[in-house]
Design a protein around this nucleic acid. Structure first.
Lengths: 338, 338
DNA sequence: AGTTAGCACTAAAGAGATATGTGTGCTAAG
DNA sequence: CTTAGCACACATATCTCTTTAGTGCTAACT
């Protein structure tokens, strides 16, 4: 749209903005000019002059005419892009992550989710791992396992190792043998089919094929249609939460309506799925910049190891310890794609 | 312990208690004597006399010296046991449940969970379905499906149709063939073993068996140990929530700490599992009588159809519309065990 | 013996009033 | 450019006062 506005801040002004952002992140109190005098070795009036300049530029806000300043969304943005200095990960935290990542028994996604859980723990924010999305997923295998003479469990496996299962009643007049036989035909013909196309191919390819040999081909197709129909939605994504209620520990969530709102959003699968990204960088979406919740920051990145892709996200208040979260995510990300 | 205390309430006193409980359930306001005058065609003083008698018996409480009365836990109890008249289910609600229950395609547990979701919707309380507990579950089948040359997905199926899966890395120096062969041996030897004993038998029966024919028997056993080890915990129960956040709509949850507490409890799997019951009746556990949350009422019952067992529960505030919830649960229960 | 009117009393909830603390903007002088 | 000084703004807290909705108790009534 518009050329990126170049803002030139004086040295003290930069430091001042940084100090204000970090003070607010720490204390959640609007910061006043007086409290910064000693740090900058000047009078409160000087600070105030700079502050009002920073406010003019849109980096700071006031909660009311005579309150201290708090960072605006733009202020946070400038902070993370230009001022923030990532904190070093403590040895203790690094150890926690390493022991998981070095555990050869753990499959990649399990290791990642465990690590994100740890990061949630360390930071007190909520973490989300969105597993492989199904668009490129294809059918690997279908299994039919009889449970009793009334029902079977149908199991589907995708090429990425995602497993889905559903119990299905055996329709009247159909034998388990016929079902199993049909499943074998499906396995021969449909392996490699994108998950989204399975239902269609069931109708267009399998039905004519079995119509020749099976009497009840219509019912058999319906049976598998039933077995597979939930699969499409459910398998879209694996969603994993770490510290789902951690975000409630943040002091901004001390009001019933805000709590209910954020809880509602975290339970809303569609909304959570929307967080998905394929961006390889760590991107920070502050407030209105994310479409999850305007009162939060969502930090995202994605991984792609041998075609196994997923999104990592941290959800916390806008007033997030960016300098702590970013290096943690970075560390994990680098390790994954070593 | 002590013989059940027989309390004799006069006719008016009974009706009064009923009226107070129902008024409080509806309006969530302590009910005063004046408001009941018209209903009983007597003066507020008369009502007050009866009220103070009911308070003496422990059925009513005051929030402060000069407030109206609210039902005590004992009061609710007496109400549900002696005074409550179950409301008829509306035609609309019954229709909703019937269309699900009459859908022959749906497997029993799916129909039940869908119904409980409907009941959550109707009542604005939270419903829980706890699926079959694993104690009697036995192994039905193990499948190993190779994903790529680094990992496989191990799938376990129990006799009840419960499916669990885990991706596992293939250890160095072991071939897929060996793994599949071992899984075949497991299928031959361990089918029918209670889930809780599988790990033990793996060590005591499978290991010596494969030691003869396979070189890397030690590693192979470890592999399957790894694959099965999560299974035990996870498969303990299927937990299904309907309207998980519905309970937050109840006006008693308008305080940050209460919200956080109940959310925390609902996320606590151990606590939720504890709700499990095998009681065939519908039992009402009010406040301190349930060990889930002293501020809520938990209504439970269980079903057992052809050995498929589970618990149904509704969690709401103590101030619950008992006369609405009980018939709904009853209807569902009777239908299930038709 | 149960019912009622009357009255004193209580606690919560709301409305002002007032003071206090923490900040600002602005001006004029250094 | 920096600073001291001052008037002003708003949030917060604390009191007081009043209103309201209820109670318990007593004495009279049916």
């Amino acid at each position: 749209m518009c050329a990126k506005e170049v803002v030139i801040l004086g040295d003290r002004q930069s430091k001042l903005l940084k100090a204000i952002v970090e003070s607010y992140i720490k204390n959640i109190k609007p910061v006043g000019s007086k409290s910064l005098c000693k740090l900058f070795n000047c009078s409160s009036a000087t600070i105030r002059n700079d502050m009002s300049y920073l406010e003019e530029l849109g980096f700071l806000e006031k909660t009311h005419t005579s309150s201290g300043r708090i960072p605006s969304e733009k202020g946070y943005n400038y902070y993370v892009e230009n001022l923030m200095k990532p904190k070093e990960i403590t040895g203790e935290d690094m150890l926690k992550l390493q022991t998981i990542l070095n555990n050869k028994e753990l499959v990649l996604t399990d290791a990642i989710t465990k690590c994100m859980e740890i990061i949630s723990d360390i930071t007190n924010y909520t973490s989300i791992v969105l597993g492989k999305n199904s668009e490129n997923n294809v059918l690997k295998q279908v299994s039919i396992i009889p449970i009793d003479n009334k029902k079977v469990v149908a199991i589907l496996i995708t090429n990425t190792g995602h497993v889905e299962n559903k119990q299905v009643n055996i329709p009247d007049g159909i034998s388990i043998k016929e079902i199993v036989k049909t499943s074998e035909i499906i396995n021969k013909s449909l392996v490699g089919t994108p998950i989204n196309d399975v239902l269609e191919k069931l109708e267009l390819e399998i039905k004519p094929q079995i119509a020749k040999t099976m009497e009840k081909y219509e019912e058999l197709c319906n049976f598998f249609y039933d077995a597979f129909s939930d699969f499409k939605e459910k398998s879209d994504d694996d969603i994993f939460f770490g510290g789902k209620t951690n975000i409630l520990k943040q002091p901004e969530y001390n009001e019933p309506n805000k709590i209910k709102e954020i809880i509602g959003k975290l339970e809303n699968i569609e909304l959570v799925k929307n967080i998905e990204t394929e961006d390889k960088d760590i991107k920070i979406y502050i407030g209105s910049q994310n479409n999850f919740d305007p009162d939060t920051t969502v930090i995202k990145t994605s991984y792609n190891v041998d075609g196994e892709v997923g999104t990592l996200a941290i959800i916390g208040p806008k007033r997030m310890e960016y300098d702590k979260v970013v290096p943690l995510l970075n560390y994990l990300k680098n390790f994954i794609e070593r």
